[in-house]
Design a protein around this nucleic acid. Structure first.
Lengths: 132, 132
DNA sequence: TCTTGGCTTAGAGTTAACTCTAAGTCGTAG
DNA sequence: CTACGACTTAGAGTTAACTCTAAGCCAAGA
């Protein structure tokens, strides 16, 4: 017997509103959500992993439609392992690109900040009115 | 005498459409764009740095309104160095958070991919039909 | 002269991914 | 008995940041 969560509890846990959770189920990116005998959704800890994985795909820029396609393949008995692997590899590249991109931004910001810190260290506050 | 670029050239260079460049100027996040004698925008290499900096702010999640506020401070003679520094420091935190976030996503994807690669290595293609 | 590429204002349309409303049903706890 | 928290469908509204259209003007080059 696996412990399950109501939609409200689960919502708080994963940081996604009940409304959006139902929406995700409806559009097909959250399949296999169990129901209790009265028809209410019964989320399991397994589902947390799935949500995290979905977040991963979404955040690395995979559009909802493509996520749905992936999920359908995952659900089907058809032979789609190669394709799914390929899709994940693309998202991995995206993730790595994002890391590089934000590292660049961090550098730009640090560079600007060096200038500001310098300026603040050298100049009494009342004399400061300089453009960057 | 500084070499300048037409809006079309500059557009290609920074990867932002002429339309959007005009829009940026209009909403106040691209100030000080020079004009030639006939009134056409004359972008300088300086402006490229500025665009890159703006991209930095935008990509680290600073909304347009806040960017405009920053730009206004940068333009004004008022004493806003501390505030601007503070804003940049917030964006730096954002950039670092993003890096961590995407590193996490990359790990999740790599983990999944290990499973797929394993599966593909061990199973002849015609036998594959497994759920992840 | 005609085409090309620039300019302007004002406002409408697009996009994805939610996010919410309405309107009604059901089961349980106080 | 009543409130609460689930549930349903269908469709409307929201959001930011573009993105484009219309309509018309101006200047340079072939």
């Amino acid at each position: 017997m696996v412990k399950t969560h109501t939609i409200n509890d689960f919502s708080k846990f994963v940081g996604i509103s009940p409304h959006t959770l139902r929406y995700y189920e409806k559009i097909g990116i959250l399949p296999r959500i169990q129901r209790d005998w009265s028809g209410n959704r019964a989320f399991t800890d397994e589902d947390i992993h799935w949500i995290n994985f979905i977040k991963c795909l979404k955040s690395t820029g995979m559009p909802i439609d493509k996520i749905r396609a992936y999920v359908e393949m995952d659900e089907s008995e058809s032979e789609t392992v190669d394709m799914r692997r390929h899709m994940l590899e693309e998202q991995l590249v995206e993730a790595k690109n994002k890391i590089a991109e934000y590292q660049h931004y961090a550098e730009v910001l640090e560079y600007k900040l060096v200038y500001f810190r310098d300026l603040i260290a050298k100049t009494p506050a009342r004399e400061r009115s300089v453009r960057s």
